[in-house]
Simulated assay, not measured.
Amino acid sequence: AAREMVLVAEQGVLGGRNRLDPTWHEMLNHATRKVNEAEEERVRSEREHQRVTQLCQEAEAKVQTLQKSLKKVIVKSKPYFELKAQFNQILEEHKAKVTALERAVAQAKTRYSVALRNLEEISEQIHARRLQRLGLGRAPPLGAEASPQPPGSELEGTQGTQLGAEGPAGDTLSVLSLQTIASDLQKFDSVEHLL
């Protein structure tokens, strides 16, 4: 491109009526300077290319020499490096499994804590229903502490009917929740066993 600029400038200077036009001379000087800079850069690049090529050839010669002199050692050590590559691959696979198991454990722990919270809520609901049914601040005593009730007592009758009416619904809810919690605990135990 710089050489083309020089040609254009020379044609402008030679072809013009006024050969002393400073614009053409300035353009010619600028184009000549660009040609000289490009030539210097080309020479520098050639020298650098020759230097790097020489270094590359020396390195290849050294590699060839080392391969010839260390051929027995290379053959003996080759199985080690092949095994190392295999073990590294197995290690990466195990790391991926451990990461997956850790994720599963974290999810199981989250489900476990949610299940425990749900169980606590269910327990509180059942306790509140019992207190509501009995109309007392405290549940009646059991076993030897319980005072015998007369056969036609109102408390026994209300307990029987209310337990019969609301008991199964509460029991069904708690049984289903307990089954869910039990299955979550089994999954959690199996994941922890794998770790």
Rank of each mutant, 00 (worst) to 15 (best):
E26N: 05
K34F: 01
A165Q: 12
G160R: 15
A61Q: 11
H193F: 02
Q107K: 10
A1I: 09
L20W: 13
L20C: 12
A165V: 11
K78V: 01
E39S: 05
L70Y: 11
G167M: 11
Q149D: 04
A169I: 12
E92Y: 00
E124P: 00
A106K: 06
S190Y: 05
K68I: 09
Q50G: 02
Q64T: 10
E154G: 00
E93T: 11
G152K: 03
Q86Y: 02
D184C: 05
S45K: 10
G170T: 10
K68W: 01
K95Y: 08
L176A: 15
G160N: 05
K62W: 07
G160D: 04
T172S: 07
R3Q: 14
H49C: 08
K78C: 09
G157F: 04
A182H: 03
L194V: 08
S45H: 06
L185Y: 00
N88R: 14
S45D: 09
L185P: 02
L116R: 14
L14P: 10
I74K: 01
S153D: 07
A108W: 05
I126V: 15
A128Y: 07
D171E: 07
K68D: 03
P79Q: 10
L131A: 02
D21H: 05
V98R: 00
F87A: 08
K95N: 13
R111V: 07
V13P: 06
T180Y: 13
A59R: 01
E145S: 06
K187N: 15
E82M: 05
T99A: 11
G143K: 02
L116P: 05
G160Y: 14
P141V: 03
V35C: 11
V105P: 00
L101Y: 02
K72F: 06
G164Q: 13
P79D: 03
A31Q: 01
Q67W: 04
N118S: 13
E156R: 06
L195I: 01
A165F: 02
V63M: 10
Q86R: 12
H49K: 14
E154I: 03
S123T: 11
S174C: 04
H25S: 04
G170H: 15
R17N: 14
R19W: 09
Q57H: 12
R129M: 10
A146P: 00
A61G: 02
E145M: 14
L28F: 05
F81R: 05
E10V: 13
G167D: 12
T23K: 13
K76W: 03
F188V: 00
L66V: 15
L173K: 11
V191P: 01
P150Q: 15
A9H: 04
K95G: 09
E166D: 13
P150A: 10
A169C: 06
G143Q: 05
N29Y: 09
H49M: 09
S177G: 08
M5C: 10
Q186L: 08
K62P: 02
A31P: 00
A144P: 05
V6W: 04
I122P: 06
A115V: 08
T32I: 02
A115D: 07
P168L: 04
V191Y: 03
